[in-house]
Amino acid sequence: MSLALETLAQSTVPTGEVVTFWILAPIALACALGMVLARNAVHSALFLVVTMLCLGVFYMVQAGPFLGFVQIIVYTGAIMMLFLFVLMLVGRDSAEAVIEVLRGQRIAAVVLGGGLAALLGTGAVRALRATTATGLEAANADGNVQAIAQLLFTRYVFAFEVTSALLITAAVGAMVLAHVTRPKAERVGQTARMLARFAPGGSPAPKPGPGVFATSNSIATPALLPDGTPAERSISAVVPTRDLTPEEAAPKGTQGNQEGQQ
């Protein structure tokens, strides 16, 4: 660690990098706070997107253009988009509940969060203590992309493959749990459906909708058949049947029946 710090102290940071840092770092921090504090789930996700974009720019400025753009494409573009996809389906007005369900939940969360950060921090410091920084020039000697590719496919190829296998397992597992397979026998094809429609008991034409040729346009009012009797199957089984009030049952003012209005 001390060696790395010395190397850092010796090198001068370009002005452009400093300016970028002091503009984007406050934005990234503010958006990180906004993500935690925002009541609306979509706003929260958007704050996180801005923080991720800022991180991507930081990577680019620190001579890691590939990592920066991959951060933007993969995390911001794909993963956060999927989050947003789900959040939008939840409904736009569903705000976070403010009531504390478990007693002391917040304090516990703060303590545990701080503990995790400290654990990760000390772990990183201890692991990097003896590491000597080679510097960007040496790391990017053959080009940034080539250097990453070489490390990824030689030294870290096992870790890389294991991680991808883990992710694929997770994806397949989610598919297996969520996907409902219908047995082949249960599937009804277009031809079978049509045959059933034309068989005795079926109806080749579309069924009458509720309120059609009836005195009301309510979905609870059955359609009238040509002989004047109500067609019960025009009403959905879900809709509760109820008696209409005399006003509702009275003929409405249509073109041929104006006296119903008065």
Partner: peptide, 12 residues
């Protein structure tokens, strides 16, 4: 060095 990725990032 990664210019094509810029287009992909912008579209995403």
């Amino acid at each position: 060095p990664v210019a094509v990725l810029v287009v992909l990032a912008c579209s995403s």
